[in-house]
Design a binder for these strands. Sequence first.
DNA 1: GCGGAGCTCAACCGATCGGTTGATGCCCGC
DNA 2: GCGGGCATCAACCGATCGGTTGAGCTCCGC
Lengths: 206, 206
Amino acid sequence: MKLFLVDDHPVVRAGIKALLDGEPDMEIVGEAANADDALRLVALREPDVVLMDLQLGDGPDGVEATRRIRELPRKPQILVLTTYETDADIVRAIDAGATGYLLKASPPDELFSAIRAAARGESVLSPKVAAKMMRRMRDPGPALTAREIEILELLSKGAGNKEIARALFITEATVKTHLNHVYGKLGVETRTAAVTAAVERGLIRL
Amino acid sequence: MKLFLVDDHPVVRAGIKALLDGEPDMEIVGEAANADDALRLVALREPDVVLMDLQLGDGPDGVEATRRIRELPRKPQILVLTTYETDADIVRAIDAGATGYLLKASPPDELFSAIRAAARGESVLSPKVAAKMMRRMRDPGPALTAREIEILELLSKGAGNKEIARALFITEATVKTHLNHVYGKLGVETRTAAVTAAVERGLIRL
DNA sequence: GCGGAGCTCAACCGATCGGTTGATGCCCGC
DNA sequence: GCGGGCATCAACCGATCGGTTGAGCTCCGC
């Protein structure tokens, strides 16, 4: 089974390689520290599974890299291996075409079986991530729409309604409508409180 | 030279061990995934240098662990090895008694020389971290007053000026004056942007 | 094809915010 | 003692925000 690593931390790449050294059925055919190298080398080496970090320092992030790799003619399975477990990250990664979502805090055994499952095209989630998704399924919760998240992200930058409207090519009236929905869903009454509530619930990242 | 690893990610621990395998003068005498284990085992194994991550999952964080280890009778040097480089993290770690501050994105060579330097008791900083501190030295930076921080904390909860005034037993006019000072110091123009700027600079915590 | 959810826009209002100027009192360091 | 930083307050203005109501549109599932 041919693996490819994408992570901007040399320490982490060395760690995965060291762990996988004891697994005879796995071979690492390449690695990259950023999205551009990843895309180029994956197309060349044609791995079965790509282990992808979401934070890649400068340039496109892991979600973007995942999206592009999934557009390759001979597309590998992509297993996200990252530190964070916010709703926004998980949803975006899955949406971009990731086969699974693992946390770096996972024990090695979990990593191995997840890689093998991903190679078979099966979806795998870290228990913590799975638990989070289960909670979200049972409790519909706020469930903000994509548009509302977009608004929140601009909001967190301190943008006024007028700026948000310009940035999203909509009118100020529409922005206010979205904001009122967001206030209702998050149970807050001001734009500032909406930002902190969204950050605390992992809906957006600062 | 005896090393001890503290990191909640098995992958990272494996990575550091793998990298250090090629360095004959370094020996890993133990590792831990949380602050409590770290404190207990470090007291027992008496390493020369502790490599400490700041994020340790549940329980006390790396800063707290650093503080406690520095209170041990035979205290080792502590080299922080983490992902983040916010001012608040750096300052808190140094304040807790860390000998150096390295980023996980550092190349292995840098890691090795940093460990050797730390063992000698020398302070080492990642170039990116050092650059950040230099900037902060040259530019004294915002330096908000205690009162202004109080205002920011209430602000982050989404409070209006009137609420802030009541909470701090001052008039709304005074709140506005403070806010205008904060805007100026942080280089922002809205209350929402002030909150995110303050969070990013580690002035307040959500 | 009907309803529901989501996105869009409009007009209006009061409340709040941001910006400005100016002022008072306090404490600290030179 | 004098300047300077800090905290406090006042009055005023325009701009923005929050709240409301109502409406048209598309897309999707039943």
